[in-house]
Design a protein around this nucleic acid. Structure first.
Lengths: 142, 142
DNA sequence: GATATATACTTGAGTAGTCAAGTAATAATC
DNA sequence: GATTATTACTTGACTACTCAAGTATATATC
């Protein structure tokens, strides 16, 4: 009866890793959650043009309202800033602020350390492969 | 400056997939969240002996208090039941209830459908491999 | 066998999101 | 160019957790 479909294992392991990751990342870094780090990462990539909230939501896989809620305190403490979108008055653009840049660097360090710690040495070589696999899966879903 | 460490991509993609997965799984299945499904899965594996809350927490990667909070409503609607642990009065044992068995089956179906949908056809063959990799990573962390 | 320490769990207060519904602006259609 | 539909975002009410602190039992130490 228990064939244990590999996709089941995939879901379950994914969830576990994510939960632990979330917790581990948060603590240690002064109040920077994993989600916030990821947001900063994408905003940094977007450059000074910034990006629309909708696009950010799509990138991180959350809903638009989740993004609104996350950005609010980040704006308050100067990690990101907002600017009107001259082409479309409905949306405003978000971009990374100097404070965010600094936090992003801290976070990057932490992420690398964490990855070092989490990924078993024997599997380290496969990291690149697995990352590409996940990227591929991620692309197809919404 | 942007080497884009593969572990970074790993974190980011992982988080995105998990976020989408969570949302997709929840909706559609009558009020059964991914976490609840995973709990049922582990409890089913544990059999009629059930398991201690602490061990369940470890399995799913959440904290003990998170488990308490999740189990409360599940107990109320008859998905799980609790029993005193005769060997240790501090802990009580949780086990899957008949209602939970039914929900687990529904959830399993949904999970398989979802997996079908999420994993790109080209990558399907690698599913087993990636699952084992994630399991391996999951083992090492807490 | 009393005391100290560690473990299993719960609880209060707070954060990180969700969904459904609302507002305002843009785009499409006739 | 008025109407309708769609899009970008926000808000209220809720769920799913987190951490820190508390309670009760069990274990180790002397």
């Amino acid at each position: 009866m228990n064939t244990l479909h590999p996709s089941m294992r995939f879901f379950i392991d994914l969830a576990r890793i994510q939960a632990v990751l979330n917790r581990r990342f948060d603590s240690g870094l002064g109040g920077l959650g994993l989600s916030e780090f990821i947001i900063l990462f994408h905003l940094d990539e977007a450059g000074k043009e910034g990006m629309r909230r909708v696009d950010l939501a799509e990138k991180i896989g959350l809903t638009a309202s989740g993004v609104t809620r996350l950005l609010l305190p980040m704006e308050k403490i100067g990690l990101v800033k907002r600017e009107a979108n001259r082409d479309d008055a409905r949306s405003s653009l978000v971009m990374i602020a100097p404070g965010g840049k600094r936090k992003l660097e801290e976070g990057t360090e932490r992420a690398e350390l964490l990855a070092e710690e989490l990924v078993p040495a024997a599997r380290k070589g496969e990291m690149k492969y697995i990352a590409s696999l996940l990227t591929d899966i991620g692309k197809g879903i919404r």
